[in-house]
Design a binder for these strands. Sequence first.
DNA 1: ACACAAAGGAGAGCGCCGCTCTTGCTTTGG
DNA 2: CCAAAGCAAGAGCGGCGCTCTCCTTTGTGT
Lengths: 236, 236
Amino acid sequence: MSSTHGARARARIEVTAAIKEEARRQLAKEGATKLSLRAVARELGMASSALYRYFPSRDDLLTALIIDAYESLGEAAAAARDAAADVGPVQRWTAVCVGVRAWALAHPHEYALIYGTPVPGYTAPDTTVPAAARAVLVVVGILRDAQAGLGLAKPPLPPELKPEAVRMAAELAPDLPPEVVATTVAAWAQLFGMIGFELFGQFNRVVEDRDTFFRHVVGQLAHTVGLVYPQQGPAT
Amino acid sequence: MSSTHGARARARIEVTAAIKEEARRQLAKEGATKLSLRAVARELGMASSALYRYFPSRDDLLTALIIDAYESLGEAAAAARDAAADVGPVQRWTAVCVGVRAWALAHPHEYALIYGTPVPGYTAPDTTVPAAARAVLVVVGILRDAQAGLGLAKPPLPPELKPEAVRMAAELAPDLPPEVVATTVAAWAQLFGMIGFELFGQFNRVVEDRDTFFRHVVGQLAHTVGLVYPQQGPAT
DNA sequence: ACACAAAGGAGAGCGCCGCTCTTGCTTTGG
DNA sequence: CCAAAGCAAGAGCGGCGCTCTCCTTTGTGT
């Protein structure tokens, strides 16, 4: 029971939070490569060596920030879904995609941290996996709702990809058709291709009206994953 | 005309090439963040300060490597296209996409350099733009050939995106339908979403048979950009 | 042919960085 | 009450990007 017993344990929690807070500030301002333990310690008025009592290395600090970033993105996605609770599945899908993009634009360095180039040694610990899954589970939930409601179209899938799709479905959403799960994973990756291109400057001098462009592409993606416009009424 | 006159100018070219070569080696082995001017100089047996006669800063060296990487990718794309000269447009599209992915898998750090997180204060100089365009112009050429041959389907496009599409077409391929150009840009971004996810570990424990998965998604993308299977015969 | 300017190379040094080790001090728990 | 554990601080190591100074080599105009 030495969790939050004494003042010592409490202080440790507070200092850890303060370190992460300051690190996040530097991350947002300068990016991951400029984040330095010495600068964090300096800003907090402590010796740089003392910081190693809380994070054994710079990469461990970054890992903590990565997990927080995944959580933050997951919350943004969930919030976007909840704000679009009373519209059709396609609109809800679009809302979540737009929300994810908005989060990325608002937190570019944190986006880069989780979806950009991995850090030097680049072995993501398994602790990041559940956090990373949160956002994608939001769209999976939308597809689930759509299936229970208006229904889902079954995207085409070549037979040689069927076993892979079945495996993916078993791991991500056993109650959804494998075709839908496989296509959703692809759409998810494609979504972040769009966002990454916009964020990392690949759309400079190419795409100007990015809001409209993004919404259109996301609407097309809704089609490919099996969501259809409610007006068209799928067969049940 | 002091271009390649004396032995001095020649030596400068050679030393510059040697620096880039060694830098590329380190880049391929350790990644961009680990690339250090001092290590390059050490490996070349020269003082680190001497290196600044050739590249005024580390970022300038990186910029040179970025341009080379774009060129390398463009050549890989062109080679894939030429190797698939005698098949239909869809197969040629697929071949180029597969070639781009293969290049990325073979040169992960160079891929990360150009499509991953940009370096901190770094804004891509305009010299990189034409190099970056090479690869995408390869697929534009395929679409051009398809239009001249079996024809192109016109992808759906909402009216509010029409002016944007027209602008993009004017800049990239004036002889192609704006709908096709806009959709191709989106597909290009989506393609790199897939590649980035695979390369940066986002597909770990999610997608296993990545060859098959990638080929399928790329085939679907061929549809969305307006390429149709020759067997189905488009209207002319 | 020779002096002179330009270019390249080498070393020392500045202020950063991540990280370790040692030395004390404070809190904690038996 | 006292040993053990936790924590802060300082010094220090090697490495980094980059600058400055000094010296040698090279090319060139007279």
